[in-house]
Design a protein around this nucleic acid. Structure first.
Length: 512
RNA sequence: CGGGGUGUAGCUCAGCCUGGUAGAGCGCCAGCUUUGGGAGCUGGAUGUCGCGAGUUCGAAUCCCGCCGCCCCGACCA
Protein backbone atom coordinates (compact mmCIF):
# COMPACT_ATOMS: atom_id res chain seq x y z
CA UNK A 1 0.00 0.00 0.00
CA UNK A 2 1.54 3.21 -1.17
CA UNK A 3 1.25 6.20 1.11
CA UNK A 4 0.53 8.60 -1.73
CA UNK A 5 -0.32 8.49 -5.38
CA UNK A 6 2.80 10.48 -6.26
CA UNK A 7 6.25 9.29 -5.33
CA UNK A 8 7.49 12.64 -4.12
CA UNK A 9 5.81 14.97 -1.65
CA UNK A 10 5.57 18.74 -1.73
CA UNK A 11 7.56 19.15 1.45
CA UNK A 12 10.37 16.86 0.30
CA UNK A 13 11.05 18.64 -2.95
CA UNK A 14 8.57 21.11 -4.36
CA UNK A 15 10.11 21.57 -7.83
CA UNK A 16 10.36 17.83 -8.32
CA UNK A 17 6.81 17.38 -7.07
CA UNK A 18 5.69 19.92 -9.65
CA UNK A 19 7.35 18.04 -12.49
CA UNK A 20 6.01 14.73 -11.24
CA UNK A 21 2.47 16.01 -11.11
CA UNK A 22 2.74 17.40 -14.65
CA UNK A 23 3.78 13.98 -15.85
CA UNK A 24 1.71 11.70 -13.64
CA UNK A 25 -1.49 13.70 -13.99
CA UNK A 26 -0.87 13.62 -17.73
CA UNK A 27 -0.99 17.39 -18.05
CA UNK A 28 1.99 18.05 -20.32
CA UNK A 29 5.44 16.86 -21.22
CA UNK A 30 8.62 18.43 -22.57
CA UNK A 31 8.88 18.39 -26.36
CA UNK A 32 11.75 17.94 -28.80
CA UNK A 33 11.45 21.66 -29.43
CA UNK A 34 13.57 23.10 -26.70
CA UNK A 35 11.64 25.13 -24.17
CA UNK A 36 8.26 24.26 -25.64
CA UNK A 37 5.84 21.71 -24.29
CA UNK A 38 3.32 19.21 -25.49
CA UNK A 39 0.06 19.84 -23.69
CA UNK A 40 -1.97 16.69 -23.21
CA UNK A 41 -5.75 16.43 -23.04
CA UNK A 42 -6.14 16.91 -19.29
CA UNK A 43 -3.80 19.91 -19.21
CA UNK A 44 -5.00 21.41 -22.45
CA UNK A 45 -8.61 20.72 -21.47
CA UNK A 46 -8.11 22.81 -18.33
CA UNK A 47 -6.77 25.61 -20.52
CA UNK A 48 -9.71 25.26 -22.91
CA UNK A 49 -12.10 25.67 -20.01
CA UNK A 50 -10.17 28.68 -18.75
CA UNK A 51 -10.40 30.13 -22.25
CA UNK A 52 -14.12 29.56 -22.47
CA UNK A 53 -14.82 31.19 -19.13
CA UNK A 54 -12.49 34.13 -19.60
CA UNK A 55 -13.55 34.71 -23.20
CA UNK A 56 -17.11 35.14 -21.96
CA UNK A 57 -15.96 37.68 -19.37
CA UNK A 58 -13.93 39.58 -21.95
CA UNK A 59 -16.87 39.74 -24.33
CA UNK A 60 -19.23 40.75 -21.52
CA UNK A 61 -17.06 43.81 -20.96
CA UNK A 62 -17.49 44.89 -24.58
CA UNK A 63 -14.45 43.46 -26.29
CA UNK A 64 -14.35 41.63 -29.61
CA UNK A 65 -11.92 38.99 -30.78
CA UNK A 66 -9.52 39.61 -33.64
CA UNK A 67 -6.60 37.62 -34.96
CA UNK A 68 -3.31 39.20 -35.95
CA UNK A 69 -0.35 37.52 -37.68
CA UNK A 70 2.24 35.43 -35.91
CA UNK A 71 5.07 37.16 -37.78
CA UNK A 72 5.76 40.82 -37.26
CA UNK A 73 8.00 42.90 -39.54
CA UNK A 74 11.18 43.50 -37.59
CA UNK A 75 11.06 47.25 -38.07
CA UNK A 76 7.76 47.41 -36.14
CA UNK A 77 9.32 46.31 -32.90
CA UNK A 78 11.93 49.07 -33.16
CA UNK A 79 9.38 51.84 -32.88
CA UNK A 80 9.01 52.08 -29.13
CA UNK A 81 12.41 52.41 -27.49
CA UNK A 82 11.69 50.78 -24.12
CA UNK A 83 9.67 48.09 -25.78
CA UNK A 84 12.59 47.08 -28.02
CA UNK A 85 14.97 47.07 -25.12
CA UNK A 86 12.63 44.89 -23.11
CA UNK A 87 12.11 42.24 -25.73
CA UNK A 88 15.15 42.36 -28.04
CA UNK A 89 17.05 39.72 -26.09
CA UNK A 90 14.39 37.07 -26.36
CA UNK A 91 13.24 37.33 -29.93
CA UNK A 92 13.10 34.55 -32.52
CA UNK A 93 13.76 35.88 -35.99
CA UNK A 94 12.61 34.53 -39.34
CA UNK A 95 15.16 35.36 -42.02
CA UNK A 96 14.56 32.98 -44.94
CA UNK A 97 11.64 31.65 -46.90
CA UNK A 98 13.20 28.53 -48.39
CA UNK A 99 15.47 25.62 -47.53
CA UNK A 100 18.10 24.22 -49.78
CA UNK A 101 20.15 21.05 -49.82
CA UNK A 102 23.72 22.28 -49.60
CA UNK A 103 26.38 19.54 -49.61
CA UNK A 104 23.86 17.04 -48.35
CA UNK A 105 22.73 19.28 -45.55
CA UNK A 106 19.46 21.12 -45.39
CA UNK A 107 20.12 24.83 -44.82
CA UNK A 108 18.35 28.13 -45.33
CA UNK A 109 18.80 29.03 -48.98
CA UNK A 110 21.21 32.00 -49.12
CA UNK A 111 19.29 33.21 -52.17
CA UNK A 112 16.06 33.22 -50.20
CA UNK A 113 16.93 35.68 -47.46
CA UNK A 114 14.07 38.01 -46.58
CA UNK A 115 14.59 41.63 -47.40
CA UNK A 116 13.16 42.50 -44.01
CA UNK A 117 13.26 39.71 -41.41
CA UNK A 118 10.19 38.93 -39.34
CA UNK A 119 10.14 38.37 -35.65
CA UNK A 120 7.86 35.80 -34.11
CA UNK A 121 5.52 37.82 -31.91
CA UNK A 122 6.59 38.04 -28.28
CA UNK A 123 3.44 40.19 -27.84
CA UNK A 124 1.48 42.13 -30.43
CA UNK A 125 1.47 45.78 -29.33
CA UNK A 126 3.36 46.92 -32.40
CA UNK A 127 1.45 45.20 -35.15
CA UNK A 128 -1.86 45.97 -33.50
CA UNK A 129 -0.80 49.58 -33.02
CA UNK A 130 -0.10 49.76 -36.71
CA UNK A 131 -3.65 48.63 -37.45
CA UNK A 132 -5.06 51.01 -34.85
CA UNK A 133 -3.33 53.92 -36.55
CA UNK A 134 -5.19 53.10 -39.75
CA UNK A 135 -8.53 52.23 -38.18
CA UNK A 136 -8.87 55.12 -35.80
CA UNK A 137 -9.81 58.47 -37.37
CA UNK A 138 -12.28 60.07 -35.07
CA UNK A 139 -13.37 60.15 -31.44
CA UNK A 140 -16.38 58.25 -32.78
CA UNK A 141 -14.12 55.24 -33.40
CA UNK A 142 -13.23 55.11 -29.72
CA UNK A 143 -12.96 53.25 -27.51
CA UNK A 144 -11.62 50.46 -29.66
CA UNK A 145 -11.81 47.31 -27.56
CA UNK A 146 -10.12 44.23 -28.92
CA UNK A 147 -8.76 40.94 -27.74
CA UNK A 148 -6.94 38.07 -29.36
CA UNK A 149 -6.23 34.48 -28.39
CA UNK A 150 -2.85 33.52 -29.73
CA UNK A 151 0.46 31.81 -29.25
CA UNK A 152 3.54 33.92 -28.62
CA UNK A 153 7.23 33.16 -28.33
CA UNK A 154 9.94 34.50 -26.08
CA UNK A 155 13.35 32.89 -26.17
CA UNK A 156 13.71 32.00 -22.52
CA UNK A 157 16.92 30.97 -20.79
CA UNK A 158 15.24 28.60 -18.41
CA UNK A 159 11.88 27.00 -18.92
CA UNK A 160 9.43 25.04 -16.79
CA UNK A 161 6.26 23.35 -17.96
CA UNK A 162 3.38 25.84 -18.00
CA UNK A 163 5.17 28.38 -15.80
CA UNK A 164 7.65 29.55 -18.38
CA UNK A 165 7.87 28.05 -21.84
CA UNK A 166 9.30 29.67 -24.93
CA UNK A 167 6.08 29.33 -26.81
CA UNK A 168 2.94 29.83 -24.79
CA UNK A 169 -0.74 30.41 -25.33
CA UNK A 170 -2.41 33.49 -24.04
CA UNK A 171 -4.96 36.17 -24.62
CA UNK A 172 -3.85 39.72 -25.18
CA UNK A 173 -6.30 42.57 -25.00
CA UNK A 174 -5.51 45.87 -26.68
CA UNK A 175 -7.63 48.96 -26.41
CA UNK A 176 -7.50 52.60 -27.44
CA UNK A 177 -9.28 55.45 -25.70
CA UNK A 178 -9.79 59.19 -25.96
CA UNK A 179 -8.42 60.01 -22.53
CA UNK A 180 -6.11 58.93 -19.80
CA UNK A 181 -9.07 58.50 -17.48
CA UNK A 182 -10.89 56.19 -19.87
CA UNK A 183 -7.79 54.12 -20.51
CA UNK A 184 -6.98 53.82 -16.81
CA UNK A 185 -10.55 52.82 -16.11
CA UNK A 186 -10.20 50.09 -18.74
CA UNK A 187 -6.89 48.95 -17.24
CA UNK A 188 -8.51 48.61 -13.84
CA UNK A 189 -11.65 47.01 -15.22
CA UNK A 190 -9.65 44.22 -16.83
CA UNK A 191 -7.53 43.77 -13.73
CA UNK A 192 -10.82 43.25 -11.93
CA UNK A 193 -11.97 40.76 -14.56
CA UNK A 194 -8.75 38.80 -14.01
CA UNK A 195 -9.14 38.87 -10.25
CA UNK A 196 -12.70 37.58 -10.47
CA UNK A 197 -11.74 34.96 -13.03
CA UNK A 198 -8.80 33.70 -10.97
CA UNK A 199 -10.82 33.50 -7.78
CA UNK A 200 -14.08 32.19 -9.19
CA UNK A 201 -12.94 29.86 -11.95
CA UNK A 202 -9.46 28.78 -10.81
CA UNK A 203 -10.37 29.04 -7.12
CA UNK A 204 -7.02 30.79 -6.77
CA UNK A 205 -6.98 33.79 -4.47
CA UNK A 206 -5.01 36.72 -5.82
CA UNK A 207 -3.95 40.15 -4.74
CA UNK A 208 -4.42 42.88 -7.29
CA UNK A 209 -2.08 45.82 -7.19
CA UNK A 210 0.33 48.06 -9.01
CA UNK A 211 3.82 46.91 -9.97
CA UNK A 212 6.72 49.07 -8.83
CA UNK A 213 8.28 51.17 -11.60
CA UNK A 214 11.19 48.81 -12.20
CA UNK A 215 8.86 45.86 -12.79
CA UNK A 216 6.74 47.58 -15.42
CA UNK A 217 5.98 46.17 -18.83
CA UNK A 218 8.47 47.64 -21.32
CA UNK A 219 6.79 50.73 -22.70
CA UNK A 220 4.03 50.96 -20.12
CA UNK A 221 3.22 53.98 -18.00
CA UNK A 222 1.95 51.76 -15.26
CA UNK A 223 1.50 48.04 -14.83
CA UNK A 224 -0.93 46.24 -12.56
CA UNK A 225 -0.88 42.58 -11.68
CA UNK A 226 -2.70 39.88 -9.84
CA UNK A 227 -0.37 37.85 -7.65
CA UNK A 228 -1.08 34.38 -6.33
CA UNK A 229 0.74 32.51 -3.59
CA UNK A 230 1.90 29.02 -4.42
CA UNK A 231 2.12 26.29 -1.77
CA UNK A 232 5.84 26.82 -1.37
CA UNK A 233 5.17 30.45 -0.48
CA UNK A 234 6.48 31.86 -3.73
CA UNK A 235 4.50 34.40 -5.68
CA UNK A 236 3.22 33.83 -9.19
CA UNK A 237 2.30 36.78 -11.36
CA UNK A 238 -0.93 35.43 -12.72
CA UNK A 239 -2.05 38.28 -14.94
CA UNK A 240 -1.09 41.78 -15.94
CA UNK A 241 -2.91 44.88 -17.11
CA UNK A 242 -1.04 47.88 -18.47
CA UNK A 243 -1.87 51.50 -19.05
CA UNK A 244 0.42 52.40 -21.92
CA UNK A 245 -0.21 56.14 -21.84
CA UNK A 246 0.42 57.67 -25.22
CA UNK A 247 3.79 55.92 -25.65
CA UNK A 248 2.70 53.51 -28.34
CA UNK A 249 0.31 56.05 -29.82
CA UNK A 250 3.23 58.44 -30.24
CA UNK A 251 5.52 55.76 -31.63
CA UNK A 252 2.91 54.49 -34.05
CA UNK A 253 0.89 57.58 -34.76
CA UNK A 254 -2.39 56.40 -33.29
CA UNK A 255 -4.37 59.64 -33.37
CA UNK A 256 -7.95 60.75 -33.60
CA UNK A 257 -9.75 63.94 -34.39
CA UNK A 258 -11.59 65.08 -31.28
CA UNK A 259 -14.93 66.92 -31.02
CA UNK A 260 -13.04 70.19 -31.01
CA UNK A 261 -11.46 69.32 -34.36
CA UNK A 262 -8.00 68.84 -32.93
CA UNK A 263 -5.81 65.78 -33.64
CA UNK A 264 -5.02 64.00 -30.38
CA UNK A 265 -3.03 60.93 -29.34
CA UNK A 266 -4.93 57.87 -28.18
CA UNK A 267 -4.38 56.41 -24.74
CA UNK A 268 -3.88 52.67 -25.05
CA UNK A 269 -3.95 49.65 -22.76
CA UNK A 270 -2.95 46.03 -22.99
CA UNK A 271 -3.58 43.09 -20.69
CA UNK A 272 -2.99 39.36 -20.77
CA UNK A 273 -3.05 36.01 -19.05
CA UNK A 274 -1.42 32.85 -20.28
CA UNK A 275 -1.12 29.09 -19.95
CA UNK A 276 1.01 29.95 -16.95
CA UNK A 277 -2.29 29.97 -15.08
CA UNK A 278 -2.40 26.19 -15.43
CA UNK A 279 0.89 26.10 -13.54
CA UNK A 280 -0.65 28.36 -10.91
CA UNK A 281 -3.64 26.07 -10.61
CA UNK A 282 -1.34 23.06 -10.10
CA UNK A 283 0.75 24.76 -7.41
CA UNK A 284 -2.35 26.10 -5.69
CA UNK A 285 -4.47 22.96 -5.60
CA UNK A 286 -2.12 20.01 -6.03
CA UNK A 287 -1.48 17.70 -3.09
CA UNK A 288 0.70 14.66 -2.52
CA UNK A 289 -1.79 12.48 -4.37
CA UNK A 290 -1.74 14.63 -7.48
CA UNK A 291 -3.84 17.45 -8.79
CA UNK A 292 -7.16 18.57 -7.40
CA UNK A 293 -8.79 20.18 -10.38
CA UNK A 294 -11.33 22.88 -9.59
CA UNK A 295 -14.68 21.50 -10.80
CA UNK A 296 -15.43 24.60 -12.84
CA UNK A 297 -12.39 23.91 -15.01
CA UNK A 298 -12.14 20.13 -14.84
CA UNK A 299 -12.46 18.62 -18.32
CA UNK A 300 -14.37 15.80 -16.63
CA UNK A 301 -16.10 16.66 -13.39
CA UNK A 302 -17.39 13.22 -12.50
CA UNK A 303 -15.52 10.13 -13.60
CA UNK A 304 -17.27 6.80 -13.31
CA UNK A 305 -15.09 3.73 -12.95
CA UNK A 306 -16.99 0.46 -13.31
CA UNK A 307 -15.24 -2.20 -11.23
CA UNK A 308 -14.95 -4.66 -14.11
CA UNK A 309 -13.58 -8.10 -13.30
CA UNK A 310 -13.96 -10.01 -16.52
CA UNK A 311 -17.12 -11.65 -15.24
CA UNK A 312 -20.62 -11.98 -16.71
CA UNK A 313 -21.96 -9.15 -14.54
CA UNK A 314 -19.53 -6.70 -16.19
CA UNK A 315 -22.06 -5.90 -18.91
CA UNK A 316 -24.63 -4.90 -16.32
CA UNK A 317 -22.05 -2.69 -14.59
CA UNK A 318 -21.26 -0.95 -17.85
CA UNK A 319 -24.93 -0.37 -18.62
CA UNK A 320 -25.52 0.94 -15.14
CA UNK A 321 -22.49 3.27 -15.42
CA UNK A 322 -23.51 4.53 -18.84
CA UNK A 323 -27.02 5.29 -17.62
CA UNK A 324 -25.62 7.09 -14.58
CA UNK A 325 -23.36 9.21 -16.80
CA UNK A 326 -26.25 10.07 -19.08
CA UNK A 327 -28.37 11.21 -16.15
CA UNK A 328 -25.52 13.28 -14.72
CA UNK A 329 -24.82 14.84 -18.11
CA UNK A 330 -28.41 16.01 -18.21
CA UNK A 331 -27.81 18.01 -15.01
CA UNK A 332 -26.30 21.43 -14.95
CA UNK A 333 -23.73 23.01 -12.68
CA UNK A 334 -22.02 26.41 -12.70
CA UNK A 335 -24.58 27.45 -15.32
CA UNK A 336 -23.30 24.84 -17.69
CA UNK A 337 -23.87 21.20 -18.59
CA UNK A 338 -22.44 18.78 -16.10
CA UNK A 339 -19.45 16.82 -17.44
CA UNK A 340 -19.62 13.14 -16.45
CA UNK A 341 -17.62 10.38 -18.06
CA UNK A 342 -17.34 6.61 -17.89
CA UNK A 343 -13.73 5.49 -18.12
CA UNK A 344 -13.83 2.76 -20.77
CA UNK A 345 -10.17 1.85 -20.55
CA UNK A 346 -9.28 -1.82 -20.46
CA UNK A 347 -7.24 -1.74 -17.31
CA UNK A 348 -7.51 -2.62 -13.70
CA UNK A 349 -10.17 -0.64 -11.84
CA UNK A 350 -7.69 0.25 -9.12
CA UNK A 351 -5.29 1.70 -11.70
CA UNK A 352 -8.05 3.76 -13.20
CA UNK A 353 -9.04 5.03 -9.78
CA UNK A 354 -5.51 6.23 -9.04
CA UNK A 355 -5.11 7.72 -12.49
CA UNK A 356 -8.14 9.90 -11.85
CA UNK A 357 -6.98 10.70 -8.35
CA UNK A 358 -3.69 11.97 -9.81
CA UNK A 359 -5.51 13.95 -12.46
CA UNK A 360 -7.80 15.32 -9.81
CA UNK A 361 -11.23 14.55 -11.18
CA UNK A 362 -13.44 16.23 -8.55
CA UNK A 363 -15.74 13.24 -8.04
CA UNK A 364 -14.74 9.66 -8.80
CA UNK A 365 -17.55 7.09 -8.78
CA UNK A 366 -16.70 3.45 -8.34
CA UNK A 367 -19.50 1.18 -9.42
CA UNK A 368 -19.25 -2.40 -8.19
CA UNK A 369 -21.73 -5.26 -8.61
CA UNK A 370 -23.34 -4.55 -5.27
CA UNK A 371 -23.92 -0.90 -6.17
CA UNK A 372 -25.51 -1.86 -9.47
CA UNK A 373 -27.69 -4.45 -7.80
CA UNK A 374 -28.90 -2.14 -5.07
CA UNK A 375 -29.11 0.93 -7.27
CA UNK A 376 -26.37 2.73 -5.30
CA UNK A 377 -23.42 4.91 -6.18
CA UNK A 378 -20.11 4.82 -4.32
CA UNK A 379 -17.86 7.81 -4.76
CA UNK A 380 -14.72 9.61 -3.63
CA UNK A 381 -14.45 13.36 -3.24
CA UNK A 382 -11.03 14.37 -4.48
CA UNK A 383 -10.79 17.32 -2.09
CA UNK A 384 -11.47 14.99 0.86
CA UNK A 385 -9.67 11.94 -0.42
CA UNK A 386 -8.34 10.59 2.83
CA UNK A 387 -9.59 10.36 6.36
CA UNK A 388 -7.32 9.07 9.10
CA UNK A 389 -4.92 7.96 6.43
CA UNK A 390 -7.48 5.86 4.59
CA UNK A 391 -9.27 6.60 1.34
CA UNK A 392 -12.70 7.83 2.21
CA UNK A 393 -15.67 6.77 0.13
CA UNK A 394 -19.40 7.37 0.44
CA UNK A 395 -22.33 5.36 -0.78
CA UNK A 396 -25.87 6.56 -1.44
CA UNK A 397 -28.85 5.61 -3.57
CA UNK A 398 -28.34 6.62 -7.14
CA UNK A 399 -31.11 9.24 -7.24
CA UNK A 400 -29.76 10.80 -4.07
CA UNK A 401 -26.25 11.01 -5.52
CA UNK A 402 -27.51 12.54 -8.75
CA UNK A 403 -29.60 15.00 -6.79
CA UNK A 404 -26.61 16.25 -4.81
CA UNK A 405 -23.89 15.98 -7.47
CA UNK A 406 -24.12 19.62 -8.54
CA UNK A 407 -24.03 20.79 -4.93
CA UNK A 408 -20.98 18.69 -4.24
CA UNK A 409 -19.15 20.11 -7.24
CA UNK A 410 -19.95 23.61 -6.05
CA UNK A 411 -18.84 22.68 -2.53
CA UNK A 412 -15.52 21.33 -3.85
CA UNK A 413 -14.96 24.52 -5.84
CA UNK A 414 -15.64 26.57 -2.70
CA UNK A 415 -13.54 24.45 -0.38
CA UNK A 416 -10.54 24.54 -2.72
CA UNK A 417 -10.79 28.31 -2.79
CA UNK A 418 -11.17 28.63 0.94
CA UNK A 419 -8.30 26.30 1.67
CA UNK A 420 -6.05 28.29 -0.66
CA UNK A 421 -7.20 31.61 0.75
CA UNK A 422 -6.68 30.52 4.35
CA UNK A 423 -3.22 29.28 3.52
CA UNK A 424 -2.35 32.52 1.80
CA UNK A 425 -3.82 34.75 4.47
CA UNK A 426 -1.94 32.97 7.22
CA UNK A 427 1.30 33.26 5.22
CA UNK A 428 1.39 37.02 4.78
CA UNK A 429 3.31 38.68 7.56
CA UNK A 430 2.58 42.24 8.48
CA UNK A 431 4.79 42.31 11.57
CA UNK A 432 8.10 42.48 9.72
CA UNK A 433 9.07 46.11 9.96
CA UNK A 434 12.81 46.44 9.47
CA UNK A 435 15.34 45.15 7.02
CA UNK A 436 16.95 43.12 9.80
CA UNK A 437 13.61 41.42 10.42
CA UNK A 438 13.24 40.80 6.72
CA UNK A 439 16.70 39.27 6.60
CA UNK A 440 16.10 37.01 9.52
CA UNK A 441 12.70 35.92 8.22
CA UNK A 442 13.96 34.99 4.79
CA UNK A 443 17.28 33.92 6.27
CA UNK A 444 20.50 33.53 4.31
CA UNK A 445 20.34 29.74 4.59
CA UNK A 446 16.85 28.60 3.87
CA UNK A 447 15.89 24.98 3.27
CA UNK A 448 14.89 24.54 6.87
CA UNK A 449 11.63 23.13 5.55
CA UNK A 450 9.65 26.15 6.67
CA UNK A 451 7.51 27.74 4.00
CA UNK A 452 8.39 31.40 3.63
CA UNK A 453 5.37 33.37 2.63
CA UNK A 454 5.07 37.04 1.83
CA UNK A 455 5.85 40.14 3.80
CA UNK A 456 3.61 43.13 3.56
CA UNK A 457 5.43 46.28 4.56
CA UNK A 458 5.92 49.94 3.84
CA UNK A 459 8.41 51.25 1.35
CA UNK A 460 9.52 54.52 -0.07
CA UNK A 461 9.80 54.60 -3.84
CA UNK A 462 13.50 55.05 -4.62
CA UNK A 463 14.74 57.84 -6.83
CA UNK A 464 16.43 56.69 -10.03
CA UNK A 465 19.90 56.81 -8.52
CA UNK A 466 18.87 54.72 -5.51
CA UNK A 467 17.12 52.02 -7.47
CA UNK A 468 20.15 49.86 -8.16
CA UNK A 469 21.07 49.68 -4.50
CA UNK A 470 17.52 48.79 -3.54
CA UNK A 471 17.34 46.06 -6.13
CA UNK A 472 20.67 44.61 -5.02
CA UNK A 473 19.57 44.61 -1.44
CA UNK A 474 16.44 42.66 -2.32
CA UNK A 475 18.29 40.40 -4.71
CA UNK A 476 20.54 39.22 -1.95
CA UNK A 477 17.48 37.83 -0.21
CA UNK A 478 16.10 36.62 -3.56
CA UNK A 479 13.16 38.91 -2.95
CA UNK A 480 11.07 40.94 -5.32
CA UNK A 481 8.37 43.48 -4.81
CA UNK A 482 5.23 41.86 -6.18
CA UNK A 483 2.88 44.81 -6.13
CA UNK A 484 1.34 47.55 -4.06
CA UNK A 485 -2.08 46.09 -3.29
CA UNK A 486 -4.99 48.24 -4.41
CA UNK A 487 -6.33 47.70 -0.94
CA UNK A 488 -3.90 49.92 0.97
CA UNK A 489 -3.89 50.20 4.75
CA UNK A 490 -4.52 53.65 6.22
CA UNK A 491 -0.94 54.20 7.33
CA UNK A 492 2.22 52.91 5.66
CA UNK A 493 4.67 53.30 8.50
CA UNK A 494 8.33 53.42 7.58
CA UNK A 495 10.18 52.00 4.62
CA UNK A 496 11.44 48.52 5.41
CA UNK A 497 14.59 49.18 3.40
CA UNK A 498 15.54 52.67 4.50
CA UNK A 499 13.56 53.41 7.63
CA UNK A 500 12.31 56.61 6.07
CA UNK A 501 8.62 57.44 5.90
CA UNK A 502 6.96 55.05 3.43
CA UNK A 503 4.99 56.07 0.32
CA UNK A 504 2.94 52.94 0.14
CA UNK A 505 2.53 49.39 1.36
CA UNK A 506 3.88 46.63 -0.87
CA UNK A 507 4.28 42.85 -0.90
CA UNK A 508 7.75 41.32 -0.74
CA UNK A 509 8.12 37.73 -1.89
CA UNK A 510 10.21 35.21 -3.68
CA UNK A 511 8.71 34.69 -7.07
CA UNK A 512 8.45 32.40 -10.05
C1' C B 1 25.33 32.27 -20.81
C1' G B 2 28.22 31.16 -15.66
C1' G B 3 28.42 27.52 -11.20
C1' G B 4 26.81 22.63 -9.49
C1' G B 5 24.40 17.95 -10.48
C1' U B 6 22.68 14.25 -13.71
C1' G B 7 21.74 10.94 -18.17
C1' U B 8 21.63 2.73 -17.77
C1' A B 9 14.38 -1.09 -19.55
C1' G B 10 7.95 2.48 -19.60
C1' C B 11 9.18 4.50 -14.14
C1' U B 12 12.71 4.70 -9.78
C1' C B 13 17.53 3.38 -9.61
C1' A B 14 22.14 -0.19 -8.74
C1' G B 15 26.61 -1.35 -11.55
C1' C B 16 31.35 2.90 -13.02
C1' C B 17 36.33 4.08 -8.33
C1' U B 18 39.39 -1.36 -9.37
C1' G B 19 37.53 -2.28 -17.95
C1' G B 20 35.70 -8.76 -19.31
C1' U B 21 30.33 -7.40 -23.04
C1' A B 22 23.61 -5.51 -18.44
C1' G B 23 20.87 -5.88 -13.33
C1' A B 24 16.89 -4.99 -9.29
C1' G B 25 12.14 -3.24 -7.80
C1' C B 26 7.81 -1.42 -9.83
C1' G B 27 5.19 -1.40 -14.51
C1' C B 28 4.10 -4.38 -19.09
C1' C B 29 2.50 -9.36 -21.54
C1' A B 30 0.46 -14.60 -20.75
C1' G B 31 -1.77 -18.25 -17.57
C1' C B 32 -3.93 -19.58 -12.99
C1' U B 33 -5.87 -17.95 -8.23
C1' U B 34 -8.34 -13.77 -5.75
C1' U B 35 -12.42 -10.17 -5.78
C1' G B 36 -16.03 -3.77 -2.00
C1' G B 37 -11.17 -2.24 -4.31
C1' G B 38 -3.39 0.50 -5.03
C1' A B 39 -4.09 -8.39 -4.76
C1' G B 40 -1.12 -13.35 -5.03
C1' C B 41 1.61 -17.22 -7.62
C1' U B 42 4.11 -19.00 -12.06
C1' G B 43 6.23 -17.94 -16.60
C1' G B 44 7.74 -14.14 -20.30
C1' A B 45 9.21 -9.71 -23.25
C1' U B 46 11.89 -5.17 -23.10
C1' G B 47 17.94 -1.74 -23.48
C1' U B 48 22.64 0.65 -30.08
C1' C B 49 24.02 1.97 -20.99
C1' G B 50 22.36 10.38 -24.04
C1' C B 51 25.43 11.22 -28.85
C1' G B 52 30.26 11.23 -31.28
C1' A B 53 35.32 10.38 -31.49
C1' G B 54 39.59 8.08 -28.80
C1' U B 55 42.65 4.49 -25.61
C1' U B 56 42.32 -0.94 -25.37
C1' C B 57 42.32 -7.70 -27.45
C1' G B 58 37.90 -5.85 -24.99
C1' A B 59 34.44 0.35 -22.74
C1' A B 60 28.10 1.43 -19.28
C1' U B 61 32.97 1.70 -16.73
C1' C B 62 38.97 5.34 -18.59
C1' C B 63 40.18 10.10 -21.78
C1' C B 64 38.27 14.16 -25.08
C1' G B 65 34.23 16.77 -27.42
C1' C B 66 29.04 17.59 -27.91
C1' C B 67 23.82 17.32 -26.44
C1' G B 68 19.56 16.87 -23.15
C1' C B 69 17.49 17.39 -18.37
C1' C B 70 17.49 19.28 -13.08
C1' C B 71 19.04 22.97 -9.22
C1' C B 72 21.29 27.92 -8.25
C1' G B 73 22.47 32.65 -10.72
C1' A B 74 21.47 36.19 -14.87
C1' C B 75 16.47 36.96 -17.90
C1' C B 76 11.31 36.78 -17.62
C1' A B 77 4.20 36.10 -18.08
Amino acid sequence: MQAHALNVTRSENFPEWYQTICRDADLAEPSPTRGSMIMKPWGYGIWENMQRDLDRRIKETGHENYYFPLLIPMSFIAREAEHVEGFAKEMAVVTHHRLKNIDGELSPDPDAALEEPYIIRPTSETIIGDAFSRWIKSYRDLPLLMNQWANVMRWEMRTRLFLRTSEFLWQEGHTAHVSREDALEETMRMLGVYRAFAEEAIAMPVIAGEKPAHERFPGAECTFSIEAMMQDGKALQAGTSHYLGTHFATAQNIRFQDRDGEMKLCHTTSWGVSTRLVGGLIMTHGDDDGLRTPPMLAPRQIVIVPMLRGKPEDAALQDYSAALAAELNAQSVFGDRMRAFVDPKQSKPSDKRWDWVRKGAPLICEIGPRDAERGDVTWLRRDELRENGRVKSCTAPRAEFIGQAADMLVAIQTSLYQEARDRRDSSIRTDVKTFADLESYFGADEDDGVVKGWVQAGWRRPQDAELKAVEDKLKRLKLTIRNAPLDQPGAHGTCILTGEPADETVLFARAY
